[in-house]
Amino acid sequence: MNIFRLAGDMTHLASVLVLLLKIHTIKSCAGVSLKTQELYAIVFATRYLDIFTSFYSIYNTLMKLIFLGSSFSIVWYMRYHKTVRRTYDREQDTFRHWFLVLPCLLLALLIHEKFTFLEVLWTFSLYLEAVAILPQLVLLQRTRNIDNLTGQYVFLLGGYRGFYILNWIYRYLTEPHFVHWITWIAGLVQTLLYADFFYYYFQSWKNNKKLQLPA
């Protein structure tokens, strides 16, 4: 564990807590993409299959349970909670996210480190996580009026993988043979997808005006 990875995990945890806070307190998920939340539930379900087979640390297992629990409860809230589900703008959240799942699965079957069931699903979760934010970014472009909590959620979610890139650089420099091109490239693509959001987020923060994404 290094400071970059801890910062990344804490940022990731904060992003999930901000979203849960928003949905639970104001009983609204306006501006939140259910598609992205469903993709993240799949990412964690396929990433953490080893939770029963390999134990790294209390921290690792605890965080996996938190990420699994929060992502599935957010999907539950948005789909089934009587008040929250009414605030979900279904007409705007129309990204065909299943078109992301299949290519990621095919790519994982083609490019992986080991051809085993767990490894292919784990690789699939890396590819899917890289693109999981797309429905949310598309929704933000459409709804344009981004409330603070949703903006913070996307900002923190993008920041966590940025910290992970620093963690991978640190581990490459300090641990011999720590070379994982698949993880690195997927993580880089993921962070780059946030680049334009980050740009407009900082612009709005600097000029102290409401976050507006160009149409």
Binding site: D9, H12, Y56, E175, P176, V179
Partner: peptide, 10 residues
């Protein structure tokens, strides 16, 4: 797990 294992990450 091997020390260079990336699976210890979240």
């Amino acid at each position: 797990p091997k020390d260079d294992d990336v699976k210890d990450e979240l």
